[in-house]
Amino acid sequence: MLTVDPITKGIVLDHIRAGNGIKIFERLGLREVEYPVALVMNVPSNKMGRKDIIKISDTLALDLTLLGLLDPDITVSYIDEGKVTEKVKIGLPERVEGLIECKNPRCISSYERHGQSVFILVDRKTKEYQCFYCGERVRV
């Protein structure tokens, strides 16, 4: 079994759906950083069968909204002095600003400079969001 050393300070993203790790790694820009980062793929998991894990040995500010959209089942653990100081189960964000583009060509958000897209979660089960401005619905 492949092992990666525990980190003493940083962040662990656990329970990433297998195959999603590389996408999240790229979206967080982890290829560019200078501190140690580990992406472990296809780790056996009792709950998920297989999962991916990302370990980051630094305390960067994570965009939890983006992470929640990419994979709502992720658990984020903040580590300090080798101990977990905080554990967050992300879930789908209630409100998403600037990350989902409204597909309605008549929506004000695609036209107005101040109109950064805003989507509100309307159905957690179907992962459906609704444009705050025009009401257009989208599944993530």
Binding site: N104, I108, Y111, E112, H114, F132, Y133, C134
Partner: peptide, 14 residues
Amino acid sequence: RHPREGAARLAALY
């Protein structure tokens, strides 16, 4: 009145 959908909701914010 505005031709874009959701324009009034945006305007109301300001």
